[in-house]
């Protein structure tokens, strides 16, 4: 049997493809692009929340936030490791990120203006990420699926700590409640944009569905997220900033307003509020850490020679 047919049968039977199996070049390239983009998102995603570690209101909140940001670093590393099993070079991936040749999720190009943003990111941004990521636990490429299982387990803590933080603020002063509502107003639409362009505009979806890299379309996942978030918002006592948001009994889903696609494409193309800042920060961290990497290598070499 020829290799391509064997590959297609493996995928169609819902079996996993493993690193040393033959795979079409396009499958490999698509996976490297998607996993790298995902890994970069985790690493860049440390910045907006890291912004609040030194100003967390209590030691408990600070410990939680530190643990969460450390998890994001861990998620990035699981994913970089998965990309490497496809032949990608780790150092090269970092270079591509800081040279702007590979993307990361646009959501992290929005600023975190108040502490309520830490809660809303946990609730909505991590909530949207979970919607995207749970189906990826069954993606056709084994190492990616296994990394996603670890990630999803940990994301559940992220979402719950965010929601709990918001519940605490909502039971506080009027100003605290307003702060939460303001934060929801700013993050709701960017969260919906996390699912990517609409199905009609998504160039990669069809092939990725055949290869079982993706299991659901962008619009399906976005709808699922809206339906999940509405009762959570009600319980919290906040209003989602969309006058068109209404339950549609015929569809059994919520209808919602049109995303501002002009803004979406602007941020994707690098003109979001924080694009330049995020990359500059990542580049600085990488370059400032160069001496540590070199020193550790030199030390390892010296020990090896002494042995």
């Amino acid at each position: 049997m020829d290799l391509e047919r064997q590959f297609e049968q493996t995928v169609a039977a819902d079996h996993r493809v493993e690193p040393r199996d033959w795979m079409p070049d396009g499958y490999r390239a698509t996976l490297i692009r998607q996993i790298a983009q995902h890994a970069h998102s985790e690493i860049i995603g440390m910045q907006p929340e890291g912004n609040w570690i030194s100003r967390a209101p209590s030691l408990r909140r600070k410990a939680v936030l530190l643990a969460k940001v450390q998890d994001e670093a861990g998620h990035g590393l699981y994913l970089y490791a998965a990309a490497e099993t496809l032949g990608a070079d780790r150092a090269e991936l970092t270079e591509k990120l800081i040279e702007g040749r590979q993307k990361y999720s646009s959501i992290f190009n929005y600023p975190t203006l108040t502490y309520a943003d830490v809660g809303v990111i946990g609730w909505l941004v991590d909530g949207a990420a979970i919607c995207n990521q749970v189906p990826l636990c069954r993606t056709s490429y084994g190492p990616y699926a296994r990394a996603m299982i670890r990630v999803c387990k940990e994301e559940s803590f992220h979402q719950r700590q965010g929601y709990e933080l918001l519940m605490t603020m909502m039971s506080g002063t009027r100003q605290q409640r307003e702060m939460v509502q303001d934060s929801v107003n700013r993050w709701w639409w960017p969260s919906l944009m996390m699912f990517g362009p609409s199905d009609a505009e998504s160039s990669n979806t069809e092939q990725s569905m055949v290869w079982r890299i993706k299991r659901h379309t962008n619009d399906e996942l976005r709808q699922r997220f809206v339906d999940m978030s509405v009762p959570q918002a009600e319980k919290l006592g906040v209003t989602l900033p969309d006058p068109a948001l209404v339950w549609n009994p015929d569809r059994g889903h919520h209808d919602f307003g049109e995303i501002d696609w002009t803004e979406f494409w602007q941020v994707v193309k690098g003109e979001g509020p924080c694009n330049a800042e995020r990359i500059a920060h990542r580049r600085k961290a990488h370059e400032d850490g160069a001496w540590v990497r070199e020193a550790a290598t030199a030390y390892a070499r010296k020990k090896e020679q002494a042995a």
């Binding site: 590393l77 490791a81 990394a147 550790a296 290598t297 030390y299």
Partner: peptide, 19 residues
Amino acid sequence: VGSLHAPDDEMALRNARDL
């Protein structure tokens, strides 16, 4: 469980614990 990069065996063990 996965893989990681480290300069030597001892650091690999420590990084593995953290990761």
